[in-house]
Design a binder for these strands. Sequence first.
DNA 1: TCGGGATGTGTACGATGTCCACTTGTGGCC
DNA 2: GGCCACAAGTGGACATCGTACACATCCCGA
Lengths: 175, 175
Amino acid sequence: MLREATRRVGVSPNAAYRHFSDREDLLAAVSLHCLTLVATEIMREQAAAGAADDLGAQLDAIGRAYVHFALREPGLFRTAFAAHTDPEPGRGGEDGGLGPYGLLLDVLDRAVEHGAMRAERRPGAEVTAWASVHGLALLLLDGPLRSVPEAAREPLIDAVVRTVRDGLFRGGAAD
Amino acid sequence: MLREATRRVGVSPNAAYRHFSDREDLLAAVSLHCLTLVATEIMREQAAAGAADDLGAQLDAIGRAYVHFALREPGLFRTAFAAHTDPEPGRGGEDGGLGPYGLLLDVLDRAVEHGAMRAERRPGAEVTAWASVHGLALLLLDGPLRSVPEAAREPLIDAVVRTVRDGLFRGGAAD
DNA sequence: TCGGGATGTGTACGATGTCCACTTGTGGCC
DNA sequence: GGCCACAAGTGGACATCGTACACATCCCGA
């Protein structure tokens, strides 16, 4: 893997050690870079979703973008989240702007603020949203859903994203 | 990994090839076996959840059991779903009974039947449920949630499971 | 009793991640 | 202009891994 990378660059395996202390370190760098790509994809899809004050649509866009990125760049996506060094420490991204996680927190906070989501649902909401799309991406990429045909994927993504949005925005109160 | 396994059994590396054609094949066997363990865990938690006709509680139990298993047996869980050979083809498990997937389909079908879930929400419901807990398990195990302290995990699991249940059972109608 | 299948061993090969010692090109400073 | 430090790359070596092949051993049924 490390050797393969150096081969593609046309350089000896050891050259990598001038820039990364470790195979793990290399992966971490890729991972970090990948996060900004995901953030970009999210912002594109959020813009395409229209009305910035339709928080439901904005949340959906984040989820869809996440999975779309995973499907379009399976190698990068896998690498980004297989690196056993923590990505996503806080809101910020590599480039100073918001990372994917920051974008998600943002929408959720605004949703509570604007009354789209009950405050009691807020704790753990980001984890729920993230886990769903992350799980879906992995199931589609490497899991048992690997063989789902292209055409059947979009409806699945929609189903997941809509269900989670409903759970967050319409659920709560009545336990 | 293959060599390590044979070492633990106290046998030469090649002995493995008498039983498995491949490293991949070995992993697939572990994976298959693992599914019955998960199914067992699910049924235990379902029984503990009480009333078999409270479909919400039954669904929650499945989700919690899935994540609990992952946390209790991280190695097995990782192996089971990293094996690049399809687990979970259908409802059935290794031993003839229902596998985890079968148990999930069961609850969802009954939920529609008993009117707990709108029929329009049924398509993709199993994927949504599965993806959420699968994603959560991986985030907690190897992902950025790895460092969440023991005590903070249970509330997180609850949040995910409840939100998804609400999305499935209370969502829909009003698109 | 004997033959054959199941199980295991030994040796070997290519590939990988990593370590070490060595070369080379480039920029700044006297 | 000459020198030196330093960043970047090379080559060789090692342990480890998955795997292939040829060979040994055990046990059971005819």
